[in-house]
Nucleic acid binder design. Structure first.
Lengths: 110, 110
DNA sequence: TATTAATATAACTATTTAGCTATATAGTCA
DNA sequence: TGACTATATAGCTAAATAGTTATATTAATA
């Protein structure tokens, strides 16, 4: 059973996607993640468990709190999966090499 | 309710992902799509409906048959969504928390 | 027109899920 | 230690889902 099952299932819920969107700004505790929502703390904890089981986030122990953070690898897995379909919508399908070339020469960091 | 709900839900099933993988090679009828699987024809038809409701595929009428094809726009939507996380894993950004440390201690690749 | 072929729909069952409230666990602090 | 804080877990309910078989629909063909 592919882990993509869990990844895509986790992403199918808007609350969970919102949690990820918050976590992309940095680590956050359950209390912090809970705040913008109207749902209960146990529900948030369960959503976080689904995200963690999917490998999308991880938990760190910090005294009383359990801050969560994004796990990059899972997103990379999605990107890899999506790659096999990129040719389908890319306008540059016929010139895929050009696309790759463009990616190589993208702006260098300062 | 975002359509990404439906898209990610559709993708969470391995049978449906396999159907998409077949369709990336080109249009196929239900009978053709059914063949590699051990599940019933109605099940496949329902999976196809889920994929179509998500906008991932579309149906054409051809006499008796209803060949399905990939719909590129939905994949583009996934790619767009994923884009907001790309910084997380691309280049040296293995982990957002480590960005500053990394930039201090590591020479960016040329 | 009657038959066959391709596909969809209905009706049922078992499983999963998202929400809730109540409670348990574990760390911090006075 | 006792109170408080942060979070997890248990147990419940309602809704959704994936599978099944049986049947309906529609086009092609003899």
């Amino acid at each position: 059973m592919s882990s993509l099952d869990h990844v895509f299932h986790a992403l199918s819920d808007p609350t969970r996607r919102a949690l990820l969107a918050r976590l992309v700004e940095g680590e956050a505790t359950v209390a912090e993640l809970l705040q913008p929502f109207e749902i209960s703390q146990p529900s948030i904890s369960r959503h976080l468990k689904v995200l963690e089981d999917a490998g999308l986030i991880s938990t760190r122990i910090s005294g009383n709190a359990r801050p969560r953070r994004i796990e990059p690898a899972a997103f990379e897995a999605i990107s890899d999966w999506l790659e096999q379909y990129r040719m389908i919508w890319s306008e540059n399908y016929a010139r895929l090499d050009d696309v790759l070339e463009t990616m190589k020469t993208k702006e260098p960091k300062t």
